[in-house]
Amino acid sequence: MRVLAVQNYRGTGLGQVGEALAEAGAEIDLRAAYMGEPLPRSHDGHDALIVLGGEQNALADEEYPYFPALLRLIRDFGDAGKAVLGICLGSQLVARAYGGENILDRPLEFGWHEVHITEAAADDPVLSAVPGSFPIFHWHCDTFSLPQGARHLASSERTSNQAFRLGRAVYGIQFHFEADRKLVGEWNALFGEQIRESQPGWLENYAREAASVGPAADAAGMALARAWVRQV
């Protein structure tokens, strides 16, 4: 199993998805596209595609000129029946690739908050792996409309479209289920000044919040990660 993972921003990692891939013995081909590392022209040579998050918006083609090629690559994998996973910005790019609208500059959704799965998720191969409601980490302002034909799988109080699936295994997941407490702690260190400005008190209260909500969030995230890997 060989999986292409595309990084769009510094500090983004595979987290629990990487752990689930390691359990399955997968080879990960990690491309820092935002740093100019080239993307493959097609799905040939890879069994699945992961598109990670980032601070930029999904329409920022001028600042990130590889975006159009990434959109084509997403479609290429999906149309070939291969598994695709877009997380946060990645989900917005998957939505865009399949004709969804990118909706920018909404109020920030940050921290551990509840996500609720829809009735359509009850028999979904990935989202059925978690309870009907579970806490998970969020960090985004932008969102998207569902592409035509997408199955709506999850929502939160602030964001109606938190997860969707197209075809067999093309997933867009807005929330950061890959981000366990270890990865969130790394983001606290790396982006501390930015977090302090937008979320006063988060860093000071983080340890208490992580102890309270983190175990359940990590368990849900790992269940989703393993379920997605089974679709590869």
Score class of each variant (00 low, 15 high):
M1W: 11
L4Y: 01
Q7D: 08
Y9I: 11
G15V: 05
E19Y: 04
L21N: 04
E23I: 00
A24G: 05
A26P: 05
I28T: 10
M35I: 14
M35K: 14
L39D: 13
P40M: 13
S42H: 07
S42P: 04
G45E: 14
L49R: 10
V51H: 06
L52H: 08
N57R: 07
E62L: 14
E63V: 06
Y64R: 13
Y66P: 06
F67K: 08
A69R: 15
L70Y: 09
D79L: 02
A80W: 00
K82R: 07
V84G: 08
I87W: 13
C88N: 11
G90Y: 00
G90A: 01
Q92A: 02
Q92E: 04
V94I: 07
A95L: 03
R96L: 02
A97W: 10
G100P: 03
E101N: 02
N102V: 12
R106H: 12
R106S: 01
E109Q: 06
F110L: 10
G111K: 05
W112M: 15
V115K: 02
T118P: 03
A120T: 04
A121T: 06
A129T: 04
V130W: 06
G132R: 05
F134E: 03
I136M: 11
T143M: 00
F144E: 02
F144A: 02
L146Y: 02
Q148Y: 09
A154L: 04
R158Q: 09
R158H: 07
S160G: 03
A163F: 05
G167F: 03
V170Y: 01
V170I: 10
Y171L: 09
G172Q: 11
E178D: 13
A179D: 06
K182T: 15
L183W: 06
N188I: 15
L190H: 12
L190R: 12
I195N: 06
I195W: 10
S198A: 14
S198D: 15
N205E: 15
Y206K: 14
A207M: 15
E209R: 11
A211R: 12
S212M: 15
G214E: 03
P215S: 13
P215T: 13
D218Q: 14
A219K: 11
G221V: 12
M222W: 09
A223N: 04
L224C: 08
W228M: 08
R230D: 10
V232S: 13
